[in-house]
């Protein structure tokens, strides 16, 4: 049975023909509003923040958005939502609903997990031949290790910074008996879990056969999009809008980091697009106590509307300045 349909356009408050830029702006605005660090009701905000992230994950990806729009065409038909008959073919690998396992507690909804989840069964169990895997002769009675299972887990940057414990449930279906089994367990997200890193949970993959051991579960960390920061390995990146005079004359500005605000010195003569680095203000690197760096990219923003007094000052600057940008 299909999971309950999620209207991601409504979640982000954009029309179905919204441009990628509209989606980006809507996401940033809502993410800032519902960010657990700033909202009053942290629990409700956290849920909303994850919903917004999920909607952004699908709508900001052209391929996922195309697939979602295919699904969405039938969402309010009488008798409840069912995916189109050709959904699986159109969805391609990973997009189908025929997977034999189902995740819970990963930060994504059942709907996302069913249609857009990155979960996959992979790996080569010891002692299993190619023919057996792909439908050939089965050697009965031989102990075989279960497959490894891989899935995505949505982690906020705050969770990545400090680490957290996550209750996860994994429902697997025995391919021989058709019986479903649900396993519930806690997964420790270590401080400094970088985007793309896989966390191994031993023995929580597909059950083994004929007395063989179970495979492992690999959870691939996906950093939730943050309104102010992006990450690259353990480094944290932030874009800072500055006025032209702040860039030319230099300034001391207060900028947010994941563990409080800091005072950043913007040197005189800083160019648009220039990166400033603050050492040791990124994510933790393993257990050494060392941390990644904080990179601030300067965006010089020009005023689009000026008062009469400001116009006079710009005119005075034009008359006085020896600066020749096209020289």
């Amino acid at each position: 049975m299909a999971a309950q349909f999620k209207d991601y356009y409504t979640t982000l408050g954009v029309s179905r023909d919204a441009t990628p830029d509209d989606i980006k702006k809507a996401f940033r605005k809502l993410a800032r509003k519902y960010h657990p660090d700033t909202a009053k009701d942290k629990k409700a905000a956290e849920e909303k923040f994850k919903e917004i992230n999920e909607a952004n994950e699908v709508l900001s990806d052209p391929e996922k958005r195309r697939k979602y729009d295919q699904l969405g065409a039938r969402w309010n038909e009488a008798g409840g939502f069912e995916p189109p008959p050709d959904w699986q073919q159109a969805g391609g690998p990973g997009g189908g609903s025929s997977q034999e396992f189902h995740f819970g507690g990963t930060g994504f909804s059942d709907f996302f997990e069913q249609f857009f989840g990155g979960g996959s069964r992979y790996g080569f169990p010891r002692g299993q031949g190619f023919e057996e895997e792909y439908g050939g002769a089965t050697r009965q009675g031989r102990a075989r290790r279960g497959h490894d299972i891989e899935g995505d887990i949505l982690v906020t940057l705050e969770e990545a910074m400090h680490g957290t414990l996550r209750p996860i449930s994994l429902q697997t279906t025995n391919r021989q008996t058709g019986q479903a089994q649900t396993h519930e367990f806690q997964v420790r997200i270590p401080p400094g879990a970088t985007d793309g890193r896989r966390i191994r949970v031993p023995g929580q993959g597909e059950p083994g056969r004929g007395g063989g051991e179970a495979g492992d579960l690999y959870l691939r960390v996906r950093h939730a999009a943050h309104p102010d920061f992006t990450t690259r390995e353990a480094d944290l990146h932030h874009e800072l809008d500055v006025a032209p005079w702040e860039a030319v004359l230099g300034a001391e500005l207060i900028v947010p980091t994941l563990d409080g605000s800091i005072k950043l010195r913007v040197p005189a003569g800083t160019a648009d697009g220039q990166q400033l680095r603050v050492r040791g203000k990124g994510l933790p690197k393993g257990k050494t106590g060392e941390r990644g760096d904080f990179f601030v990219t300067i965006n010089v923003v020009l005023p689009t509307q000026v008062s009469e007094a400001e116009r006079k000052l710009w005119e005075q600057l034009r008359a006085t300045s020896t600066f020749q940008p096209r020289a």
Partner: peptide, 19 residues
Amino acid sequence: DDDSLRLLRRAEFLREACE
């Protein structure tokens, strides 16, 4: 580390199952 284990299983899969 744990990622080595994953890469190792992948390499073995390619070597044995995909010949």
